[in-house]
Design a protein around this nucleic acid. Structure first.
Length: 119
DNA sequence: ATTCTGACAGCAA
DNA sequence: TTTGCTGCCAGAA
């Protein structure tokens, strides 16, 4: 067998999609947080690139819950309309103002901090 | 094959 | 303090 697709656990993109699905309702996370959870703290760019291809994945990927570490909706233009991402977040109780998540530090959800019990 | 870009983040000056 | 460069992985030309 050749070109056998590796499991999501071994696929960087798959990991990104999986973590996105783990983001709780009404919460947001950052690209760097996901990258860090994957073990590559500086691969945040690749995370964004994976989300760019999230539409190729089956099911729904809550990519609108992923923003940059400033809380800015840098990828809102990738949701078809520039307001779609903001609307989705507002629908979950995450309000956005001036392309920035309100109370970002409170809404922030760190996968490596929640999923991995460091206690 | 090489080069550049891309929904970022960290560090140096 | 801000500005700029580098690093990271994957895909397109």
């Amino acid at each position: 067998m050749k070109s056998e697709k590796p499991p999501a656990e071994n696929d960087f993109f798959g990991m990104v999609y999986e973590v996105c699905r783990l983001i709780p309702y009404g919460r947001v996370t950052s690209y760097g947080a996901i990258a860090r959870y994957l073990g590559s703290g500086r691969s945040a760019r690749t995370v964004g690139w994976a989300l760019n291809a999230c539409h190729t994945q089956p099911g729904f990927i809550p990519a609108h819950r992923v923003v940059n570490r400033q809380g800015l909706l840098t990828g809102k233009h990738h949701f078809g309309n520039s307001t779609t991402m903001e609307q989705l977040l507002a629908n979950e109780g995450v309000y956005v103002e001036d392309d920035r998540v309100v109370d970002f530090t409170e809404k922030f959800w760190d996968p490596s901090a929640e999923i991995d019990p460091l206690i």
